[in-house]
Amino acid sequence: MIKKVIFSVLSSMILFMSCSSDDDSKIVLPTNSELTLNLNGLEPLGPDFVYEGWIIVDGEPISTGTFSSVTFPQSFTVNRSQLNNATMFVLSIEPAIDTDPAPAETKILAGPFSGSSAQVDSNSIVGDFRSASGTYILATPTDMDDTNEASGVWFLDNTTGSPMVGLDLPTLQNGWKYEGWAVIDGMPVSTGTFTDIMDFDNNAATSPYKGDSGNGPSYPGEDFLQNAPNGLSFPTDLRGATVVISVEPYPDNSPMPFTLKPLAHVVPNDAMVHSAINMAEGPTVSLSGTVTR
Protein backbone atom coordinates (compact mmCIF):
# COMPACT_ATOMS: atom_id res chain seq x y z
CA MET A 1 0.00 0.00 0.00
CA ILE A 2 2.78 2.41 0.90
CA LYS A 3 4.51 1.69 -2.44
CA LYS A 4 1.30 2.52 -4.31
CA VAL A 5 1.01 5.88 -2.54
CA ILE A 6 4.65 6.77 -3.24
CA PHE A 7 4.23 5.79 -6.90
CA SER A 8 1.10 7.93 -7.18
CA VAL A 9 2.87 10.97 -5.70
CA LEU A 10 5.86 10.56 -7.99
CA SER A 11 3.59 10.24 -11.00
CA SER A 12 1.79 13.45 -10.07
CA MET A 13 5.10 15.32 -9.66
CA ILE A 14 6.35 14.11 -13.02
CA LEU A 15 3.08 15.14 -14.69
CA PHE A 16 3.23 18.59 -13.04
CA MET A 17 6.84 19.11 -14.08
CA SER A 18 6.03 17.95 -17.60
CA CYS A 19 3.09 20.36 -17.87
CA SER A 20 5.18 23.21 -16.44
CA SER A 21 7.89 22.50 -18.97
CA ASP A 22 5.34 22.48 -21.78
CA ASP A 23 3.84 25.78 -20.57
CA ASP A 24 7.28 27.42 -20.39
CA SER A 25 8.03 26.40 -23.92
CA LYS A 26 4.87 28.17 -25.10
CA ILE A 27 5.80 31.57 -23.58
CA VAL A 28 6.29 34.07 -26.40
CA LEU A 29 8.20 37.27 -25.70
CA PRO A 30 6.72 40.46 -27.22
CA THR A 31 8.24 41.39 -30.58
CA ASN A 32 7.29 45.09 -30.44
CA SER A 33 8.11 48.06 -28.23
CA GLU A 34 6.79 51.60 -27.85
CA LEU A 35 8.66 54.62 -29.19
CA THR A 36 7.48 57.90 -27.65
CA LEU A 37 8.04 61.31 -29.20
CA ASN A 38 7.93 64.50 -27.15
CA LEU A 39 8.83 67.30 -29.57
CA ASN A 40 8.73 71.09 -29.26
CA GLY A 41 7.94 73.79 -31.80
CA LEU A 42 6.55 71.79 -34.71
CA GLU A 43 3.67 73.31 -36.65
CA PRO A 44 0.94 71.59 -38.70
CA LEU A 45 2.02 70.97 -42.29
CA GLY A 46 -1.34 71.10 -44.04
CA PRO A 47 -3.05 68.37 -46.08
CA ASP A 48 -0.28 67.62 -48.58
CA PHE A 49 2.56 66.72 -46.20
CA VAL A 50 3.13 64.65 -43.05
CA TYR A 51 5.93 64.14 -40.54
CA GLU A 52 7.62 60.72 -40.57
CA GLY A 53 9.92 59.26 -37.94
CA TRP A 54 12.89 57.01 -38.74
CA ILE A 55 15.29 54.94 -36.67
CA ILE A 56 18.73 54.21 -38.08
CA VAL A 57 19.71 50.55 -37.69
CA ASP A 58 23.03 49.33 -39.10
CA GLY A 59 23.14 52.49 -41.19
CA GLU A 60 19.71 51.93 -42.74
CA PRO A 61 16.54 54.01 -42.11
CA ILE A 62 13.46 52.19 -40.83
CA SER A 63 10.16 54.07 -40.64
CA THR A 64 8.46 54.38 -37.26
CA GLY A 65 5.28 55.84 -38.76
CA THR A 66 3.79 59.12 -39.97
CA PHE A 67 1.76 61.75 -38.12
CA SER A 68 0.06 65.10 -38.70
CA SER A 69 -0.89 66.15 -35.19
CA VAL A 70 1.70 68.27 -33.39
CA THR A 71 0.29 67.55 -29.93
CA PHE A 72 2.77 65.51 -27.88
CA PRO A 73 3.66 63.04 -26.45
CA GLN A 74 2.85 60.55 -29.19
CA SER A 75 3.74 56.83 -29.20
CA PHE A 76 4.39 54.39 -32.05
CA THR A 77 4.73 50.60 -32.11
CA VAL A 78 8.15 49.52 -33.41
CA ASN A 79 9.93 46.18 -33.76
CA ARG A 80 11.68 45.57 -30.42
CA SER A 81 14.94 44.23 -31.84
CA GLN A 82 15.26 47.02 -34.39
CA LEU A 83 14.47 49.67 -31.80
CA ASN A 84 17.01 48.27 -29.33
CA ASN A 85 19.69 48.33 -32.05
CA ALA A 86 18.86 51.81 -33.36
CA THR A 87 21.68 54.36 -33.13
CA MET A 88 19.78 57.49 -34.16
CA PHE A 89 16.32 58.99 -34.62
CA VAL A 90 15.47 61.26 -37.57
CA LEU A 91 12.27 63.16 -38.35
CA SER A 92 11.51 64.10 -41.96
CA ILE A 93 8.77 65.93 -43.87
CA GLU A 94 7.16 63.68 -46.48
CA PRO A 95 4.43 64.00 -49.13
CA ALA A 96 1.12 62.75 -47.76
CA ILE A 97 0.90 60.47 -50.80
CA ASP A 98 4.40 59.05 -50.95
CA THR A 99 5.57 56.38 -53.39
CA ASP A 100 9.21 56.54 -52.24
CA PRO A 101 9.98 54.26 -49.27
CA ALA A 102 13.17 56.18 -48.45
CA PRO A 103 13.29 59.36 -46.32
CA ALA A 104 12.90 62.68 -48.14
CA GLU A 105 15.78 65.16 -48.17
CA THR A 106 13.76 67.47 -45.92
CA LYS A 107 14.87 66.24 -42.51
CA ILE A 108 13.97 68.49 -39.61
CA LEU A 109 15.12 66.79 -36.38
CA ALA A 110 17.85 64.28 -35.57
CA GLY A 111 19.85 62.95 -32.64
CA PRO A 112 21.73 59.83 -31.44
CA PHE A 113 20.30 57.38 -28.94
CA SER A 114 22.03 57.24 -25.59
CA GLY A 115 20.57 54.46 -23.51
CA SER A 116 16.79 54.65 -23.62
CA SER A 117 16.44 58.12 -25.18
CA ALA A 118 17.64 60.47 -27.91
CA GLN A 119 17.87 64.24 -27.60
CA VAL A 120 16.95 65.57 -31.04
CA ASP A 121 17.24 69.05 -32.54
CA SER A 122 17.29 70.87 -35.87
CA ASN A 123 20.78 72.35 -35.57
CA SER A 124 22.72 69.52 -37.22
CA ILE A 125 20.10 68.38 -39.72
CA VAL A 126 18.80 71.75 -41.03
CA GLY A 127 21.34 74.40 -39.95
CA ASP A 128 22.69 76.05 -36.82
CA PHE A 129 21.23 79.56 -36.66
CA ARG A 130 22.33 80.47 -33.15
CA SER A 131 24.97 82.87 -34.50
CA ALA A 132 22.93 84.17 -37.45
CA SER A 133 22.81 87.91 -38.11
CA GLY A 134 21.48 90.20 -40.78
CA THR A 135 21.40 93.72 -42.19
CA TYR A 136 18.94 95.26 -44.63
CA ILE A 137 18.12 98.56 -46.29
CA LEU A 138 14.91 100.18 -47.49
CA ALA A 139 15.15 101.00 -51.19
CA THR A 140 13.37 100.43 -54.50
CA PRO A 141 16.12 99.95 -57.11
CA THR A 142 13.79 98.34 -59.69
CA ASP A 143 12.06 101.58 -60.64
CA MET A 144 13.17 105.06 -61.65
CA ASP A 145 11.01 106.79 -59.03
CA ASP A 146 12.84 108.02 -55.93
CA THR A 147 9.63 108.77 -54.01
CA ASN A 148 8.85 105.13 -53.14
CA GLU A 149 12.11 104.13 -51.46
CA ALA A 150 10.48 102.84 -48.26
CA SER A 151 8.48 100.31 -50.31
CA GLY A 152 11.35 97.86 -50.84
CA VAL A 153 13.63 95.78 -48.62
CA TRP A 154 17.05 94.40 -49.63
CA PHE A 155 19.18 92.15 -47.47
CA LEU A 156 22.51 93.87 -48.00
CA ASP A 157 24.90 96.16 -46.13
CA ASN A 158 25.88 99.47 -47.74
CA THR A 159 27.74 101.05 -44.82
CA THR A 160 30.96 101.12 -46.88
CA GLY A 161 29.26 103.01 -49.69
CA SER A 162 28.95 99.92 -51.89
CA PRO A 163 26.55 96.96 -51.58
CA MET A 164 27.98 94.07 -49.59
CA VAL A 165 26.53 90.85 -48.22
CA GLY A 166 24.07 91.62 -45.44
CA LEU A 167 23.22 88.17 -44.11
CA ASP A 168 25.38 85.83 -42.04
CA LEU A 169 23.60 82.48 -42.31
CA PRO A 170 24.83 78.88 -42.45
CA THR A 171 24.65 76.81 -45.62
CA LEU A 172 21.45 74.79 -45.46
CA GLN A 173 21.24 71.03 -45.76
CA ASN A 174 19.47 69.60 -48.81
CA GLY A 175 15.70 69.95 -48.69
CA TRP A 176 15.68 73.53 -47.34
CA LYS A 177 15.74 77.11 -48.64
CA TYR A 178 15.75 80.54 -47.07
CA GLU A 179 12.87 82.91 -47.70
CA GLY A 180 12.55 86.60 -46.96
CA TRP A 181 9.29 88.18 -45.82
CA ALA A 182 7.76 91.56 -45.12
CA VAL A 183 4.77 91.31 -42.78
CA ILE A 184 2.65 94.23 -43.98
CA ASP A 185 -0.51 95.04 -41.98
CA GLY A 186 -0.34 91.52 -40.55
CA MET A 187 0.01 89.82 -43.97
CA PRO A 188 3.29 88.02 -44.77
CA VAL A 189 4.44 88.81 -48.32
CA SER A 190 7.43 86.90 -49.70
CA THR A 191 10.52 88.66 -50.96
CA GLY A 192 11.64 85.40 -52.60
CA THR A 193 13.53 82.20 -51.74
CA PHE A 194 17.30 81.79 -51.88
CA THR A 195 20.18 79.55 -50.87
CA ASP A 196 23.05 81.95 -51.66
CA ILE A 197 23.24 85.09 -49.50
CA MET A 198 25.51 86.73 -52.09
CA ASP A 199 23.25 86.35 -55.13
CA PHE A 200 19.80 87.15 -56.48
CA ASP A 201 16.90 85.29 -54.93
CA ASN A 202 15.04 82.77 -57.07
CA ASN A 203 12.34 85.13 -58.33
CA ALA A 204 14.55 88.13 -59.06
CA ALA A 205 13.55 88.23 -62.74
CA THR A 206 9.96 87.04 -62.36
CA SER A 207 8.64 88.81 -59.25
CA PRO A 208 5.17 90.28 -59.83
CA TYR A 209 5.85 93.04 -57.30
CA LYS A 210 9.06 94.62 -58.60
CA GLY A 211 9.30 97.65 -60.83
CA ASP A 212 9.98 97.64 -64.57
CA SER A 213 13.57 98.91 -64.50
CA GLY A 214 15.69 95.82 -63.88
CA ASN A 215 16.04 93.19 -61.19
CA GLY A 216 17.83 95.19 -58.53
CA PRO A 217 21.18 94.34 -56.89
CA SER A 218 22.47 90.77 -56.78
CA TYR A 219 21.30 90.11 -53.23
CA PRO A 220 18.04 88.76 -51.83
CA GLY A 221 15.31 91.40 -51.63
CA GLU A 222 12.13 92.79 -53.13
CA ASP A 223 10.44 95.99 -54.26
CA PHE A 224 6.72 96.10 -53.47
CA LEU A 225 5.62 98.42 -56.23
CA GLN A 226 2.75 96.81 -58.15
CA ASN A 227 0.34 93.84 -58.27
CA ALA A 228 -0.30 93.89 -54.52
CA PRO A 229 -2.04 90.86 -52.96
CA ASN A 230 -5.70 91.32 -52.08
CA GLY A 231 -6.03 93.51 -49.02
CA LEU A 232 -2.83 95.51 -49.62
CA SER A 233 -1.86 98.46 -51.78
CA PHE A 234 1.52 98.98 -53.48
CA PRO A 235 3.66 101.08 -53.33
CA THR A 236 3.65 100.92 -49.55
CA ASP A 237 5.77 102.07 -46.62
CA LEU A 238 7.58 99.28 -44.78
CA ARG A 239 8.29 101.38 -41.71
CA GLY A 240 6.43 99.65 -38.88
CA ALA A 241 6.30 96.36 -40.80
CA THR A 242 8.23 93.26 -39.68
CA VAL A 243 11.04 91.89 -41.84
CA VAL A 244 11.71 88.16 -41.44
CA ILE A 245 14.09 85.49 -42.72
CA SER A 246 12.56 82.02 -42.50
CA VAL A 247 13.84 78.54 -43.34
CA GLU A 248 11.44 76.71 -45.66
CA PRO A 249 11.04 73.05 -46.63
CA TYR A 250 11.77 72.39 -50.29
CA PRO A 251 9.41 71.51 -51.86
CA ASP A 252 7.47 73.99 -49.76
CA ASN A 253 4.57 72.79 -47.63
CA SER A 254 2.73 76.13 -47.47
CA PRO A 255 2.63 79.65 -48.94
CA MET A 256 3.02 80.98 -45.37
CA PRO A 257 6.28 81.24 -43.40
CA PHE A 258 7.53 77.99 -41.84
CA THR A 259 8.11 77.64 -38.11
CA LEU A 260 11.91 78.18 -38.31
CA LYS A 261 12.51 81.95 -38.33
CA PRO A 262 16.11 82.71 -37.31
CA LEU A 263 16.01 86.47 -38.03
CA ALA A 264 13.32 89.12 -37.63
CA HIS A 265 13.05 92.86 -37.08
CA VAL A 266 10.36 95.50 -36.82
CA VAL A 267 11.35 98.31 -39.19
CA PRO A 268 11.65 101.48 -37.06
CA ASN A 269 9.03 104.13 -37.74
CA ASP A 270 11.83 106.65 -38.19
CA ALA A 271 14.00 104.39 -40.39
CA MET A 272 15.95 106.22 -43.08
CA VAL A 273 15.91 104.84 -46.61
CA HIS A 274 19.20 103.63 -48.14
CA SER A 275 20.64 103.18 -44.62
CA ALA A 276 21.79 99.88 -43.08
CA ILE A 277 19.49 98.47 -40.40
CA ASN A 278 20.48 95.51 -38.23
CA MET A 279 18.15 92.56 -37.73
CA ALA A 280 17.55 90.72 -34.44
CA GLU A 281 17.17 87.08 -33.47
CA GLY A 282 13.93 85.63 -34.78
CA PRO A 283 11.18 83.94 -32.76
CA THR A 284 12.27 80.36 -33.58
CA VAL A 285 15.97 79.67 -34.01
CA SER A 286 15.87 75.90 -33.45
CA LEU A 287 13.56 72.98 -32.74
CA SER A 288 14.18 70.22 -30.19
CA GLY A 289 12.68 67.32 -28.33
CA THR A 290 13.14 63.91 -26.70
CA VAL A 291 12.57 60.47 -28.20
CA THR A 292 12.23 57.57 -25.71
CA ARG A 293 12.41 53.85 -26.45
Rank of each mutant, 00 (worst) to 15 (best):
V50D: 09
F234Y: 15
K107C: 08
Q82V: 00
K177W: 07
S25P: 00
E149D: 15
P170M: 10
L109Q: 05
G240I: 12
F72Q: 09
K177H: 12
Y209L: 07
L29T: 11
A96E: 14
S131I: 09
N79L: 11
D22E: 10
E60F: 13
L29Y: 12
D24I: 12
I184H: 03
S288E: 14
Y209T: 02
S114I: 14
L35M: 11
D23E: 12
S117E: 14
V291N: 02
T242D: 13
D145T: 14
V70L: 06
E248Q: 15
T135C: 03
S92K: 05
E248W: 08
I97R: 06
G161R: 06
G216R: 01
L39H: 02
D157N: 15
E60M: 13
S124Y: 05
I245N: 02
L29N: 10
V57C: 08
S116E: 13
E43D: 10
S11A: 15
M198H: 06
Q74P: 03
I27P: 00
N84F: 09
K107Y: 02
F89K: 05
T147N: 14
A102C: 00
T160D: 11
G180A: 08
M1G: 14
L260P: 01
G180C: 10
I137A: 01
E222W: 02
M256L: 15
W154A: 04
S68L: 05
G161A: 11
M13D: 00
D237A: 08
R293W: 07
G166V: 01
A118K: 03
S12C: 14
L91H: 02
F155I: 03
D22Y: 10
D212V: 10
K261P: 00
E60D: 12
I137H: 02
N278R: 09
P163F: 07
Y209I: 08
N85M: 14
L156K: 03
P141L: 11
F89E: 04
E43L: 09
V57A: 07
H265G: 00
G175K: 03
D157E: 09
D201R: 00
Q226G: 02
D168V: 12
F16P: 00
P255M: 04
T66A: 13
G216I: 05
N278K: 13
D24F: 13
F89D: 04
D223Q: 06
N84M: 14
D143I: 11
S116M: 13
N174A: 15
T159M: 03
D143P: 01
S207E: 05
D199Q: 14
K177G: 00
A204I: 07
E34H: 01
M144G: 11
N84V: 12
Y178Q: 08
I62D: 06
A139I: 05
F7H: 10
Y209D: 02
T106E: 07
S92T: 15
T160I: 05
F76S: 09
L260A: 04
L29S: 13
A205R: 11
I137C: 03
K4D: 13
D223P: 03
S25G: 04
T259S: 09
G221I: 04
G214N: 10
L83A: 12
K107H: 00
R130K: 15
I62A: 07
S75F: 06
Q82P: 00
V267N: 01
D128R: 06
A102Y: 10
V126M: 08
M279Y: 06
P141Q: 10
P235N: 08
T106F: 06
V267Y: 00
N158E: 13
D237K: 07
R239E: 11
F67L: 13
